[in-house]
Structures are given as structure tokens and as C-alpha cells.
Design a protein around this nucleic acid. Structure first.
Lengths: 350, 350
DNA sequence: CTGAAAGCGCTTACAG
DNA sequence: CTGAAAGCGCTTACAG
């Protein structure tokens, strides 16, 4: 068995309390004693037992962070941002892979209670009654990341301002002269918010809303390929004069591009395509996709900061945070040639 | 504060030991008592304190698993495989993100000792003296996943049989009639093994080895793009009659394709390209990449199984495991037209 | 079938 | 500056 604090104490002839104090960095220790203790620790290869420490200190300095889907490309940067800040503050992250299952989340929360995590950052796909209920009773500070809980839950959140981001992308496209812009909607909470931005923009600017909803969340590239493909097909059928497509994610945009490729249409010469989220493959020359870049690391960091504020009682009830985004201009969307624009306009006017 | 086992005991007028026994599923308990205890647990909303349990049981049922790079596309499936098996056996995984840093790994190991993990699955990029040293002293069972430790370390590993996989891919290409096959080598341990397979195959079959080494590990797509691009450029300059390229990873293959695209060469009409690892975007119609598919989930599972065998003392010193792979045939590599083959042959023969 | 007691390895007032 | 003692919330022989 490995050495305990008692072994160290005995070894250098001091009390256990003294060893504990030097371990915890108390300063009211004579330098000589401290040195003896350090020496003993080294020769005995003593490693403090955190389970004991957690028990007596009544905190674990562990933050649970749920990953909606371990292949979610968002998660890694979110997590990196959160982890950095948390580590700077002496906390560790315990990751839980939810695999898009509400049940696994419930299990994770139970585990979090058993292990007495100090805080929780969650990204649930659905706010079921049961989830809200356990969140209520759990007595562990919680922050929601990238998902917006019901007001009544009292759980604060950090998210991108998808509504504004969608508006900005639309403004960008109309700025390029496009007026016949279709939207491929992601069937998620985020997708809905983006579509609202899209629709409101259309209403305000008096242009036709042409949004198509796909069936699956399409977080996986292979699903998204098919969904974007189908959506693009519908767009071409229902709105053949569309000059630009704003897809709810880059994956959907690529799916749309597959359809266009098969149909013999070229991007951006025949039609502009933009996405959202800026995946790493989106910059490949075959796509060269103009897209919305969310500050993922920043989001993770902000969620962690909010959680720390609650835990350390600086702000027991923080306000929700909506972060901005930027448009990454690449080659998949171009200015509409005035001839084209005129042509279309004329087509309608006549 | 939340209820403790004492509260439960008092509440139903039994001893703490009794409550503990029903909690741990002992069967020598009168049904009536057990029911009373369960009822009390429910009404008091009692959740056992795992930190206390870990301390007294002297095990944590936590397995540490290091992630070389949180964006590593391998990791997710590896982890999923390991997690599933471990969970079935009542263990939990504590993930550690190494960000390709040997120092962070050392810190993680320290943490693992402090928290008294029951086992460790690691994927270190380098086997430094210091690492080997701490692994020696740590007294926690360790298995290496996707990395091969020095023999002397005594750490068992699970990996793909990259040597054989490379040979198989070469056999596939020569089967298509290719005899002038270049190789883009990944500058990692795995990359070296693959190159050995490539070279040995060339030697055995008496064909020229044309391997080009890139500078960076190129695990990130954007690095790989540039590296594959540069490598392809070199191949075109040094070996202009190359008819097929076997890239060390799909990312490198795509980088090579970018060069070919710019050079006005089309794949596979002008040159065949294959990769390794089967990324999710590799199946997109722009690449349609023939590649080596490793059974990632299976690798994770195998590592977990090996670790459990050690922990539960079934096989204290398991043998290393080398898993097989399969070739995913897609459209980026095609049969060499006999005319072309002849042409090249003639070119040499004359 | 059940309880009293010791112990897991720490921390933390309290006292000096 | 240091030590003795109680306590954190469990588990586990031991005894009955």
C-alpha cells in the first residue's frame, strides 16, 4: 500500500496536523519543519489521497460537463475553453458522454450527486419534466451551455445569439445583391432560432421566405449529407429562381452542394451557398464555404466563468449570456451579377 | 446539507450497518427491513456519498483515459468502445485531455494517483524517460492504446496492425495494376510502421519505393492539407510517372488531392489516391476516397477488456494485441488501363 | 438477520 | 509554530 499522511508524520517526527498544514500551503510553519516534511514526502513517495481529502473538505473541486455526442464537433472547443478556465481555478472536469440520450443525462446527474461534484455544465437536447425535476433537487450549481432552459427552471445559460447571427448572414447575402434566398432549417432548438432570424429578416425587408425543414438533427455528416441534398432538391423544385441558399449548418450546406453538383449547377457561379458553424473541412477548396463562425472556445469559457461565479457565490443568479459571431467570407457566395438580378427582377415584374 | 446514512438509519430505527447492507445489495436482510430502508431513502432523498464510499472501500471504480488531442477524430470511437465495456462492469471513465503535451500527461498521472483511479488507458505521443519512470512507480494498472511502449516498460498495448494494413493496401493497389506507387509518410510512430509495411512490400515485389516524409504529425486537417500538398508536389517532381499515391492518412490524401486539383490532374483518371483511417468526410463525392478502415470501437473495447483483466487479476500480464483492418473501396483508386501500364513499362524497358 | 465498533486518510477548529 | 482530538460518511469484520 502507498504511504499515508501518518507515515509521513512519523517519519519526520511531527504530528499529522503539521503535515497536513504544509501540504495545504499554510504559511505559519517553520521553514525547517516544512523542509523535513517535503523531504519525507519525497523519500516515501507519498501522494495525498484525494478521496479522503474530498470527504473531509466537503468539496471535490470537480465539475461535471456533459457532451451531447462525443462526435459533436462543437464539443471539443467548448470543452477546451471551459477546461482552461476551470483548471486555472483549481477545478477538474469530469466528462459525461450522453450519446444524445436523455436517460444517460439523468444517470449522469445521479452520478454527479453521488460523487458530490461542485458544479455542472450541461447541454441537454431536451428539457423533459424529469430533467427539470432532478435539476431542481440536485443542489449542485448548474449552467446550461448551448441550450436554453425554460425560464421557470432558473437554470442560467450561455449560447450564441443565433437569431442575430442569422440576421447578419442574411444582411450579408442581400448586401451581395441576393433577394431570392432559401433557408435550410435544422430541426433543433438552435435551428428554430436561426429560422426565426431568417424569417424576420425576410419580413422586414419584404422578401419572400423560402425555408425548408429537414427531418433529422443532422449533426452527423452522413445524415446531413442526405438531408441537405433532399432540402436542396425541394428548393430547386419549389423555388427554381433561388440565387442563394443559407443552410442551417455547414454539413447541410455540403449536402446541398452534393445535390447541386449532381444537377450540374456550379457554386457560386450558378448559385451561392452559405452555412453555419465553420467546420474544419469547410475551408477545403472544393467547398470554400462562406459561413458563420461561432466563438466556441469563448462560449465554453463563459459558461465556466458563470458557473464559478455561482459556486463561489459572487453572482448567485447570473443573467443569461448571448454571444456574438462573425461571418467567414470565403468563395461559395458571390455578388449577384446585375444582369442576373435584373433578369430575375424583370421576370417577376413582367 | 443532504441526508447521510445516519439520517436514514435513525429515520427507520435501524443501525447504520443495516442501511449500508441494503445499499450494497446484501441478501441477508429481512424483506421488511429492506423495504423500510428503501422508503426512508426515498422520502429523505438520500444519495450515498461516493467520496466516503471510495475511501472506505479502497477503490474508486474510476478508470482514467487520456485523449491525445480532444479534436482527434479517433478518440471518440475509441472512447465509446472502452466506455461501453467499462460501464457494463461498473466502472466510470475519467477523461483527460492531453493536448499533445507530455507534461499534461504527467500531471494527469499524478492526479490519477491522488484520486486513486483503479486503472488507466493511455495514448502518449512520446515515451519519455520521465513518463516511463512514473508509470513504473504509479502502482495503477495501465494499458496503452494505439501507442506501442518500449518492451522494457512492461506496459501492454492494443493497436492496429499498421504494418499488415499497409501491406494489404499495397497489395490492393498492385492488384489494380499499379507498380509505380508513391507513399506519403506521417511523421509519427504509426506513420513509421506504415512506411515499413510499404517499403517491405516494395522490396518483396521488386518495385521502387518512393516515399516522402512530411514535417508535421498532421493530425489536424489544416496542417495535413499543407503537408499532403507539399508531399504531392515533391512526388510529381521526383517521380512524375507515379500512377498511384498511398497517403499515410486521409487528411494527407486530401492535401495531395488539393495539389493535383491545382495542377489540373484528375483523380482517379490521371492518378489514383488512397488514404488511411476513413474520416467521415472521406466519403464525400469530391474525394470518394478509398482508404483503410480501422475498427476503432473494437480497439477501445479491447483495451478496456485488457485493463479489466489486469485489475481483476484474471491475466496479470496480458499479451499485446494487434487488430486487423479492412479496405474501404471507393472511387479514388481505379484499375490502371493496360495501355498506361504498358506505356510505363515500355518507358522503363526501353 | 442485526448492531456496535473500528477504520479508511484526510482536515480543522481548539488549545497552547 | 505545533499537537491532540473530533469529524467527514461510509464499509466491514466481529459478535450475537
Amino acid at each position: 500500500m502507498s504511504a499515508t499522511i501518518r507515515d509521513v508524520a512519523k517519519y519526520c517526527g511531527v504530528s499529522v496536523s503539521t503535515v497536513s498544514r504544509v501540504l495545504n500551503g499554510y504559511t505559519d510553519i517553520s521553514e525547517e519543519t516544512a523542509n523535513r516534511v517535503f523531504a519525507a514526502i519525497r523519500t516515501l513517495d507519498y501522494v495525498p489521497n484525494d478521496t479522503a481529502r474530498m470527504l473531509s473538505k466537503k468539496n471535490t473541486r470537480i465539475i461535471g460537463l456533459t457532451i451531447p455526442d462525443i462526435k459533436d464537433p462543437f464539443f471539443s472547443e467548448n470543452a477546451a475553453g471551459a477546461e482552461k478556465l476551470l483548471q486555472e481555478n483549481g477545478y477538474q472536469i469530469f466528462y459525461g458522454n450522453m450519446e444524445r440520450s436523455g436517460e444517460k443525462l439523468l444517470k449522469f446527474l445521479q452520478q454527479a450527486r453521488q460523487m458530490r461534484f461542485d458544479g455542472l455544465i450541461i447541454t441537454p437536447d431536451e428539457w423533459s419534466e424529469e430533467l427539470l425535476d432532478t435539476l431542481q433537487r440536485i443542489s449542485i450549481p448548474v449552467v446550461s451551455l448551448r441550450r436554453r432552459p425554460p425560464q421557470s427552471s432558473g437554470v442560467p445559460f450561455v449560447d450564441n445569439d443565433h437569431y442575430r447571427s442569422a440576421m447578419e448572414m442574411m444582411a450579408y447575402l442581400t448586401g451581395l445583391g441576393h433577394m431570392k434566398i432559401a433557408h435550410i432549417m435544422l430541426p433543433t432548438c438552435i435551428g428554430e432560432i436561426r429560422r426565426e432570424g431568417y424569417r424576420d429578416f425576410c419580413r422586414i425587408r419584404g422578401i419572400e421566405a423560402r425555408d425548408v425543414r429537414v427531418d433529422l438533427p443532422a449533426n452527423k455528416l452522413d445524415q446531413a449529407k442526405e438531408n441537405g441534398y433532399e432540402a436542396m432538391k425541394i428548393i430547386r423544385e419549389k423555388y427554381p429562381d433561388t440565387t442563394a441558399v443559407f443552410a442551417g449548418t455547414d454539413q447541410l450546406a455540403i449536402g446541398a452542394m452534393i445535390y447541386l453538383r449532381e444537377a450540374g449547377l456550379s457554386v457560386p457561379a450558378d448559385i451561392s451557398v452559405v452555412g453555419a458553424n465553420d467546420m474544419d473541412y469547410s475551408s477545403l477548396p472544393w467547398f470554400d464555404l462562406t459561413t458563420i463562425s461561432l466563438n466556441r472556445t469563448e462560449m465554453g469559457r463563459a459558461a465556466a466563468q458563470m458557473l464559478l461565479d455561482i459556486i463561489e457565490n459572487r453572482r448567485p443568479h447570473p443573467e443569461n449570456l448571448l454571444l456574438g459571431s462573425t461571418i467567414v467570407e470565403r468563395g461559395s457566395a458571390v455578388r449577384l451579377l446585375s444582369g442576373e438580378a435584373e433578369g430575375n427582377k424583370d421576370g417577376k415584374a413582367v
